[in-house]
Nucleic acid binder design. Sequence first.
DNA 1: TTCTAATCAGCAGTAAACAC
DNA 2: GTGTTTACTGCTGATTAGAA
Lengths: 177, 177
Amino acid sequence: MVTQLEASSLSAMAGTPGAPTPSASPGSSVTPVKTEQLTDDGSMTSLTPTNGQTPSRRPPRKSTLTQQQKNQKRQRATQDQLATLELEFSKNPTPTADVRDRIADEINMTQRSVQIWFQNRRAKIKLMAKKHLENGEDLDSIPESMRQYLAMQAMESGKGLGGSLLGRAGLFPYGGG
Amino acid sequence: MVTQLEASSLSAMAGTPGAPTPSASPGSSVTPVKTEQLTDDGSMTSLTPTNGQTPSRRPPRKSTLTQQQKNQKRQRATQDQLATLELEFSKNPTPTADVRDRIADEINMTQRSVQIWFQNRRAKIKLMAKKHLENGEDLDSIPESMRQYLAMQAMESGKGLGGSLLGRAGLFPYGGG
DNA sequence: TTCTAATCAGCAGTAAACAC
DNA sequence: GTGTTTACTGCTGATTAGAA
């Protein structure tokens, strides 16, 4: 008997509601992953590579074993799911919660998984772009959805003092001179 | 067949749930709220993604009425709690989960609340700095804890030009003690 | 009104499972 | 073995809404 999530501590959680998912009913099998997660963890690996003496970034992690291992294996997207996701991505790489919700319902994935998929997809595209640049390749060799997203990103970061408030010349005396 | 877990939701971000430690000395003043929240985000449309273009801004969120309203009112930090938080912040504005945990236990707040407090505190300081800059004020008019934090930020993002502001030795309380 | 507790969504970084 | 996907963590910035 699985007794799915018996109480446990409930764990709050924010991202996705999850619980009352109306549709998505496989009906049988599928051991529902218990939402119980304790992740109290916190620290991450250090960063700030330079500088022998950095202020205090994060000490190494505690256990770094996520609940995945404790609960179950990863689920990979099927061809159908992937097709839909990629189609939607080409239409809009950053869909709203609303749209993501609809997609999730369509392909029977959790909203959370859909959200993560889009995030990872964006990251992947960025990484690809970086590689392309480093290889000195033509931009033409970059897929169009990629170009679109990157262009969008560039546009956004360039507006106002949004991104680099502290780095702007003239604002801080120690800035770029 | 997709057959993936339905509810699951895996949640996560909540980070630390309502403190599974039952023996957290029940303070008379503060009732530690068990942060069990089931954020149900909404759906509602309102957006029109314009297909890839116009990244301008996100559509207004639906109602974003979260558990707060459903469960209970906001809890504000007491003077004692605030005193501790601010002291710790002056020592280190970005404490590790460990430290946060200790603080939370000390002042009888949830770890999540402590984390949020630090986040908001940093945001506040940044905002203040921005205002100061826009007003063209001197940096000297900025409180020191603020300068410290901002300098730290600048160092990290700029990684090369960081030196000037805190070039003077021993400005950082963090990490050194 | 301002201040602040709390949420949401995105990102970088990372880890582990999976594919090659 | 490396490389790719799924997933999670903490953080930021923006935003919402409750208290003062």
